[in-house]
Each structure stands twice: as structure tokens, then as C-alpha cells.
Simulated scan of single mutants.
Amino acid sequence: MDTENFLYGFLGWLAGVLAPVITDGIKEGRRTVRVRQAIKSELHGHARRLAIAYKAVETNRGRFKRAEIEWVRGVILRHRGEDALVNALGKLLAGSDGELEALAVLSSTNNLPALRENKLPYLTSKLPTVESFQERELQALLAVVEQTEQFNSLARDAEYWGRQTFVGSDADRQRSSNNAVTSLENASRKAKDVVDEIEAYLALPEPKLA
């Protein structure tokens, strides 16, 4: 009887010790789910903005043809769904390749587009605190942040050289214009890289709660 009482007492004590641990684990799991959902929401918006930046540069350079239109439309559709831009791009794709190439040439301009830096405030604030994320998740998110920083650096370079096109000699202004175009084209390619990293993260299997 004493042994039985001791056993019941021990099990009661053990349950009391473990209950807070279990409760904390459940709370942490739910918090992780909320953080992950918020990060994904921010990344969807990030991908859309980068697709718009890509469109601006490719249009400016006279290269917004079928493949480019399809890429931008696909990104917007995957990360936002049907909207006015998706519908407008869909109508463009109904044209022939020759018509799209002619339109691309007509849409080009010497007025360089202004690219804005694209920040990820929620993701960058949460990265140091998401110990519960899996290693591959963290690696994928760090890749997004790193590629985004590279895009932003190129956008700043393009803005700087764009301002320099208004000062100095004709040769100086031409050199600044060439540098601005190079930065814009590099930023356009980097925008696609960032979107690729975002979609690689979003394609990861949803981790199961412990």
C-alpha cells in the first residue's frame, strides 16, 4: 500500500512538473506558426513589388516581350491572384510575337526608371528570434535577405548615377548614364533572383508541430 501511495504521489508530482513545460511548448508552437504565416505574407508582397520593378526596367530598356510578360504575370498571379495588372498582361499575351516586339520598342525611353529599395522589416526583425524554425527554413530566409540587400544596393547605385547625369561635362553625364543603366539592368536580374529565393522558401514542406 505504501508503495502504491508513493507511486501515485510521484506521478502527481511529475505531472505538476511537466504540465508547465508542455503548456509552454504548445504556446511556442503556436507562436512559431503565427510568425511563419506573417513572414510568408510579407514575402508574397515582396515578390510582387520586385516583379513590378523588373517590369519597369525591362519596359524602359525595350525588352518587355513575351517571356518577360509571362514571368511578371506569373509572379503576380502566384503571389496575389487575379488583379487588373494580371488581366492587362494577359491581354498583351494575346498579341503575336511581332506585335509584342514592336510594342516593346515603342515603350522604351531614355528616361530611366527610379527603383525603390525594398525592405523586409518583419522578417529581419524576427530572424534572430526564430530558434524553433528548421535549419533549411533559416537558410532559405537568409538567402532571401541576402539577395534583397544586393538588389537594394544596386537600386541605390542606379539612383546615385541617375542624379549624376545632371552634372558635369557631356562626357561625365554620358558615363553616369551608362553606369545608371548598368545598375538598373543588374537590379532587374537580381529582382528575379530574389523572387526565385522567395519561391524556393515558400515551396518548402510545412513543418509539423511537435
Rank of each mutant, 00 (worst) to 15 (best):
1 M>D: 08
1 M>E: 13
3 T>K: 13
3 T>M: 07
5 N>L: 13
8 Y>F: 07
8 Y>S: 11
8 Y>M: 09
10 F>Q: 09
10 F>R: 03
11 L>K: 09
12 G>D: 08
14 L>C: 03
22 I>C: 11
24 D>G: 02
24 D>S: 06
25 G>C: 10
26 I>T: 02
29 G>E: 05
37 Q>Y: 05
37 Q>G: 01
37 Q>H: 06
39 I>N: 00
39 I>C: 00
40 K>T: 05
42 E>H: 04
42 E>D: 07
43 L>Q: 01
43 L>R: 04
44 H>A: 08
45 G>S: 14
46 H>I: 10
46 H>W: 11
46 H>T: 02
49 R>W: 03
50 L>Y: 03
50 L>M: 11
52 I>L: 13
54 Y>S: 03
55 K>C: 05
57 V>M: 00
58 E>I: 15
59 T>D: 07
60 N>E: 12
62 G>V: 03
67 A>V: 15
67 A>G: 08
70 E>P: 11
71 W>R: 10
73 R>W: 07
73 R>C: 09
73 R>H: 08
74 G>Q: 11
74 G>T: 13
75 V>H: 13
75 V>R: 14
79 H>T: 12
85 L>F: 04
90 G>T: 02
93 L>G: 06
93 L>N: 07
93 L>K: 04
94 A>E: 15
94 A>D: 15
95 G>Y: 10
95 G>D: 15
96 S>G: 12
98 G>L: 14
100 L>V: 15
101 E>Q: 15
101 E>C: 09
104 A>E: 12
105 V>T: 14
106 L>I: 12
107 S>Y: 03
107 S>W: 04
108 S>C: 09
108 S>G: 11
110 N>M: 08
111 N>Y: 07
115 L>K: 03
117 E>D: 13
120 L>I: 09
123 L>P: 02
123 L>V: 04
123 L>C: 00
125 S>M: 15
128 P>F: 01
129 T>W: 01
130 V>E: 02
132 S>H: 01
134 Q>S: 05
135 E>T: 02
135 E>L: 03
137 E>G: 01
139 Q>K: 07
140 A>H: 05
141 L>D: 11
141 L>N: 08
142 L>D: 05
144 V>S: 03
145 V>C: 09
146 E>P: 00
149 E>D: 11
151 F>P: 00
152 N>T: 02
152 N>C: 02
152 N>A: 02
153 S>R: 07
153 S>E: 08
156 R>Y: 01
158 A>C: 06
159 E>A: 10
160 Y>V: 13
162 G>S: 13
162 G>R: 03
165 T>F: 01
169 S>I: 12
169 S>N: 12
170 D>F: 09
170 D>R: 12
170 D>P: 04
172 D>L: 11
173 R>S: 06
173 R>A: 05
177 S>V: 00
179 N>W: 12
180 A>D: 09
182 T>N: 06
185 E>I: 10
185 E>F: 08
186 N>P: 00
186 N>F: 07
186 N>A: 10
186 N>C: 02
188 S>A: 15
189 R>G: 12
193 D>W: 07
195 V>Y: 13
196 D>A: 14
202 L>C: 06
203 A>Y: 08
203 A>L: 01
204 L>A: 01
204 L>E: 01
205 P>K: 04
208 K>T: 11
209 L>M: 12
210 A>F: 11
